[in-house]
Design a protein around this nucleic acid. Structure first.
Length: 261
DNA sequence: TTCCATGTTCCGCA
DNA sequence: TTGCGGAACATGGA
């Protein structure tokens, strides 16, 4: 379930559970999950070392080990699991890091769209993959967002989901942001008013932060959100209109036919 | 059996 | 050059 908020929670989980433990071995259960790195090289780079710190950019997570960083991308179904007993290994574990203290950290990913890789540093990775700014980064100001918007055309939803423009927003949170700002997902970016742009900027960040904090407490989505009502014909929790379903930027899109214009 | 899924990439076309 | 639709990737659940 990984868009920015979920990956942020994985990052916190990783940092709390799996730092500063010597890595005994790396078990690759399915090589299709590896990016450019071969399993022998991954194992060699990690064995005898420890994860020392975690970094996140958009939907990407990085774990510092010795002179390199392990890069994780969670695809559609990736997750992390830290456990001490072998029989707790997740069914779809693809890579398992065994620690000398007997604990394990598994990267699980049923659908195999995720990636485990090595990279010299998060900065190198971000440049190489041309990722846009992380929307929760303190340097990502409204001014910067306006500059990005000014250079663009096309549907607002496509812009929000393009990782080279802004890194971390996926299908659900793009829809949620537009639902809360009352903007139709197909509205061209150049037809947004000055205040629309500000609203999108603020709502996007509020949604991301709110979801992180709520999920960190084990809570579900607020009842005012669109996310729990992603179904054709549902009632809009904001205005009582009807929830519509369509396709934008290749993804199933839900919006309120009444208040999103 | 068929459709759908929180993602990314590549190709072709306008 | 930019933007977008479609297909492909792999797999399980409704």
């Amino acid at each position: 379930m990984p868009e920015l908020p979920e990956v942020e929670l994985y990052a916190r989980y990783f940092a709390e559970q799996a730092l500063r433990q010597e890595i005994a071995r790396v078990e690759v259960r399915d090589e299709r999950i590896l990016g450019a790195v071969r399993k022998e090289a991954l194992s060699r780079a990690l064995r005898g070392n420890e994860f020392t710190r975690i970094s996140r950019h958009g939907k990407h997570l990085f774990a510092d080990v010795a002179t390199q960083w392990v890069h994780f991308h969670f695809g559609m179904s990736g997750d992390l699991a830290y456990y001490t007993s072998e029989d707790e290994e997740p069914r779809f574990a693809r890579v398992v890091f065994d620690f000398t203290n007997g604990a394990h950290l598994a990267f699980e990913d049923m659908r195999l769209f995720g990636v485990v890789d090595l990279t010299p540093s998060p900065g190198d990775f971000i440049r190489e993959h041309r990722l846009g700014p992380d929307p929760l980064d303190p340097n990502f100001t409204l001014k910067r967002f306006r500059e990005i918007v000014a250079r663009r055309r096309g549907a607002i939803k496509a812009m929000l989901m393009s990782q080279e423009i802004i890194a971390g927003i996926g299908n659900l949170y793009a829809d949620e942001t537009l639902f809360q700002t009352g903007i139709h997902p197909r509205r061209p970016v150049n037809k947004l008013s000055h205040s629309d742009v500000k609203a999108v900027y603020s709502r996007m960040r509020r949604v991301l932060r709110e979801v992180i904090e709520r999920k960190a407490r084990g809570a579900s989505y607020p009842r005012t959100y669109l996310i729990p009502r992603r179904e054709e014909g549902e009632r809009c929790p904001k205005c009582g209109g009807t929830i519509r379903r369509t396709v934008v930027f290749g993804r199933t899109t839900y919006y309120c036919g009444r208040h999103q214009r």
